[in-house]
Write a protein that binds this DNA or RNA. Structure first.
Lengths: 113, 113
DNA sequence: ACAATATATTCAAACATTCTTATATAATTA
DNA sequence: TAATTATATAAGAATGTTTGAATATATTGT
């Protein structure tokens, strides 16, 4: 299993618009490079570069189909992260109680915001 | 509500070891800068810099308590992301069926890996 | 008012990321 | 075997991130 540090690294790696789209597509099924090239509007080398980043970190993998490389999703964390990106988060977390205890919070002066 | 692009941006912002630890601490309650300074082993300016990044993106906020700044979590997405980082993901996703259909996948030659 | 405390800001150096362009490789078809 | 197709890799410019060091600000205590 990956360490916390490795997971943070994964998070950082996938936090890129193109890579999110690639992964989003891969949750729907196997895709080859030129499938992506068409649907994203970026160059072939750039698609390959992004796929390469994802692959060298074990997030995706591929098998060969003739001269096509058929990519697929490998990491279980990805669908869960993608799901969060789609969740409906309206509003904010409830503000904390008015007199919290921070370690040094013995101060009794005025409070502002 | 934030756009997908903004959420990806958020993901990128929190994908940093120090900022994850800051946020992790904030899920437990309000904290001031010197609380963090003590428990992480980084300089005070660096703590402030990270907090500032989180704050300017609406992820956290603070109120004043004397000369302390009491920080708290504001964004609802954060606890969910942190929860995923702790989940137990063992093994990998099931490999795709052996004969998938990519757009160009009409090829009938040999398959390798 | 002055000193002390808590925190923020600024700047620059080191480093990492991203994209483009050009080129390479590997498999297939003619 | 030569041409074509699908994809990868390399190199480099542009840009962004991270951190340390120095300094600034704001609030409280004396």
């Amino acid at each position: 299993m990956r360490s916390l540090g490795q997971r943070i690294e994964l998070l950082r790696l996938i936090a890129h618009p193109v890579r999110i789209k690639l992964l989003e597509e891969l949750t729907k099924g196997v895709k080859c490079v030129s499938d992506f090239e068409e649907f994203l509007e970026i160059s072939q080398p750039n698609v390959s570069q992004h796929l390469s980043i994802l692959r060298t970190h074990g997030i995706i993998d591929y098998y060969m189909d003739g001269r096509l490389r058929c990519y697929f999703l490998k990491d279980k964390m990805i669908p869960d992260v993608l799901e969060i990106l789609k969740r409906d988060y309206t509003g904010e977390l409830p503000a904390p109680a008015c007199c919290p205890v921070t370690k040094k919070g013995k101060y009794h002066g005025k409070r502002r915001h």
